[in-house]
């Protein structure tokens, strides 16, 4: 449970310590990649809580989503259409859905000494 959080911290530390910077024109791609990674991570957590977790789906989804999002943004830049908005929209919506499902699952696991709040 704590291991992934620890890994996240390690990654952040590594990134800050290496003082690595990418050119500003590529920061768009990286932001979309971050979004895709977040989406996959939360999707994986949700699947884990729902006992639907499949390692192959998770790992392939992680890399595939990142690449797809980045290439979509790339295509958008070259076509003059802000295609990365599509990726942001899709991942954003899914992110919210996943987090909502996770929240509900976690809430339903709580001991029911408090009255279950109304589902929103």
């Amino acid at each position: 449970m704590w291991l992934p959080i620890f890994g996240l911290l390690i990654g952040v530390l590594l990134g800050l310590l290496t003082d690595l910077k990418i050119p500003v024109e590529y920061s768009n791609y990286l932001s979309i990649a971050v979004l895709a990674a977040l989406d996959t991570l939360f999707g994986g957590i949700r699947a884990h809580l729902q006992n639907l977790y499949d390692e192959r789906v998770f790992v392939s989804g992680f890399f595939f989503n990142i690449i797809l999002a980045a290439s979509l943004a790339f295509l958008g830049v070259h076509l003059g259409v802000d295609l990365y908005l599509a990726a942001i929209f899709a991942f954003g919506v899914r992110l919210f859905q996943n987090i909502a499902v996770i929240r509900r699952i976690l809430l339903s696991r709580q001991p029911k000494n408090v009255k279950k709040p109304e589902k929103s």
């Binding site: 890994g7 996240l8 990654g11 530390l13 800050l16 990649a33």
Partner: peptide, 25 residues
């Protein structure tokens, strides 16, 4: 354990990307 390991790796990559993005922006 394997699941936790995969999650850790993914989280590490995510953290790394976040830090780089943060530094770039």
């Amino acid at each position: 354990q394997r699941k936790g390991f995969v999650f850790t790796i993914v989280a590490t990559i995510l953290g790394f990307m976040l830090a780089i993005q943060f530094q770039t922006i």
